[in-house]
Design a protein around this nucleic acid. Sequence first.
DNA 1: AATGCGGCTTGCGAAAACGCGTGTATCTGC
DNA 2: GCAGATACACGCGTTTTCGCAAGCCGCATT
Lengths: 293, 293
Amino acid sequence: MHVMKADWEDLKTVLHLVRGGSLAAAGALLGVNYTTVSRRITRIEATLETILFERLADGYRPTEAGLRVAEFASEMETQELALLRDLQGRDQRLRGKLVITAPQLLIGPYLSPVIERFSALHPDVELVLKASNELVDLTRREADLAVRISRSPGDSLTGLRVATQLSAGFGVQRWVDRAAEGSDAVIDWVVYEAFSHVPKAAKQAFPNSRVVLICDDMAAMVGAAVAGLGVVRMPLFLGRATPGLVQIPVLEPQPYADIWVVGHPDVWPSGKVSAFRDVLVPEFRRRRHEFVV
Amino acid sequence: MHVMKADWEDLKTVLHLVRGGSLAAAGALLGVNYTTVSRRITRIEATLETILFERLADGYRPTEAGLRVAEFASEMETQELALLRDLQGRDQRLRGKLVITAPQLLIGPYLSPVIERFSALHPDVELVLKASNELVDLTRREADLAVRISRSPGDSLTGLRVATQLSAGFGVQRWVDRAAEGSDAVIDWVVYEAFSHVPKAAKQAFPNSRVVLICDDMAAMVGAAVAGLGVVRMPLFLGRATPGLVQIPVLEPQPYADIWVVGHPDVWPSGKVSAFRDVLVPEFRRRRHEFVV
DNA sequence: AATGCGGCTTGCGAAAACGCGTGTATCTGC
DNA sequence: GCAGATACACGCGTTTTCGCAAGCCGCATT
C-alpha cells in the first residue's frame, strides 16, 4: 500500500474526465488527444488498484471511488488556480495577454475609446475582449477584469462602481402616440426574463399594459423595440443611443442596476489590470451623466 | 496570461526541490534522476515566465515566487495524501503491504507473537515493520498503524489504549545491596533525556541520589543498567524481561506512559489495519497484567 | 437492413521525457 | 596547494508517452 503515489497529472485527468463525461470531452478540456486520456485512466487505475470509471456505451461514468478522486483533485485545482492568480496579481509587467469581459451593449459606445487609448499607451499588451452577458468565472481566470451591470460587485470579488444608472421605457414613436390617448391605452411591453412582468409604476399609470414578449437577451429586446413590437425598459444610455427609439412617457426614470468594474482580489493589483482600470474608470466617471440624464 | 496552465507534476517538483534544496535531493525524494528535476524546473519557469530558484554553488535556493509556488503545491500535496488515505481506508482487501511501527523494545516480547499469528491468518498481506521510537508521520502515510508509548493518542489521530503501565527502578544486584545500607546510600541514576533528573520519590528516600548519565535512548539505558552503571527508571515489563536486572527498592512503582495503538482516522477502518488490530489488541489485553505487576 | 454518429480500443511512427555518463565550478580538509 | 566531495550543466542514446489513423461496437435514424 505504501508505494502508492498518484501521478498528479493523472489526478487532473480523472477530474476532467468526470467533468466531461467522455474521453473526447476530457481530452478537449485538457488539450490532449483523447487516447491519452484513456491511457492515463488505465494507468492510474492500475496504480491505485481501484476501478474509477465504468465503461458504458455512451461514455465513462465515474464509480464512487472515481468521484472521490475527482473531489480531491478539484481541491488541488482550486489551489492551482489560487497560485496562478497570486503570481499574476504580483506581475507588474505591462506585456502579454489581458482578458477583459463586458456586456455586449456597452462595448461599442464605452469600451471602444478605452481600448483605443489603452492600446496606444501599452502596445505590448495583447488585449482580449470577451463580449458576454453571462458571468464569466473570474476565480477560474476566464477573464482578468469584468465590466458588469449589476446590483453588487459579487461574491468575494473586488469591485468599483463606476456609474449609477437609471432606466426608462423606450420604443418607437407610435407608443408615444398611444400613451397620449390616455390611461386606458393598451401599452405592449417586451420584458426581461429575470423580471417577466410590466414595471409596477407603468401598470399603475396604464392598467391595460400587457406583456407581449419575454426575452433573455437585451440586444434582442432592443431589436424588438426598434421593430415596434412594444416598449422596453432599458438603461437610459442604451435607449438614447439607439436610433429609432424614443423615450415613452409611461414610466418615470427609475434606478437600474449600476455599472461596476470587478475583478478577483488576487488579480486586482496586477500591473496590466490596474493599468487598464486607470484608463477605463476615468472614462466612465467622465461620462457618468450619460447614465442618469 | 491566460494560456498559463501549470503542469501539476512540475508543481510537485518545485515543492520537492524547495524541500530538498538541491537537484539531487529533490530527485531522490521524487524517485527520478536529478537531471529530470533540472529540466522540469526550467520548463515551469518558462511556462510561468517567473524565476523560481537562484542557482547557487551549493544548490538551488527558492526565490520568493518559488516559495509561493511551493506553498500552494504543499496544499495540493495535502489533498493528495488525504485522497490516498481515504481510498486506503475504504480498501477492505486483505492483501498487499501493511506498515506497522512500534518501539524497538516492545517488538521482541510483544509484537513477535502478534506478527506470527497475523501472518498465519492473512498470508497475502506483506507486513512491513518499522522499529522506531521517533514519531513516524501517520498523516503522510509513513505507516498505517503505530504502537506508541505515550500519555495520549496524539493530535487528530485515532487511538486505543491497550495497556496502562507502571515503572520502577531497575539495575544490577549491587544497587539492591547499596540501597540496603540505608537512606544515606549514594544511588547512581541513568535518566531519560526528557526527564533528566532523579525521580522525586527516589530523591526523597535517598537524598544522595545523583545522575551519572543522561541518555535519549531507552535501549542504550537498558544496556547501561545491565553494565551496572546505575539505576534506570523503566517500565515494569522491560525491567522484568531483561536478564541481569532486578528491581531496586528505591522507588515505589509509579504510573508511566501507557501503551496505545494509534492510527489516522482515515486509514483506521481499512481492512488490513483493522485485521491487524484484531490480533494485536487482544494480545496486549490478555497480557496487560505484565505491565502493572 | 443500411447508414451515420458518437465513443472506445488498438497499433504504429513521431515526439517528448528520461537516465546515464562526462565535464566544470566551488568548497572543504589535509 | 591539492585531492576529494558536492552540485550542476550538457550531450547522447533509450524509454516512455503521445497523436494519428484504422477499426469495432452500440444506438438511432432512414
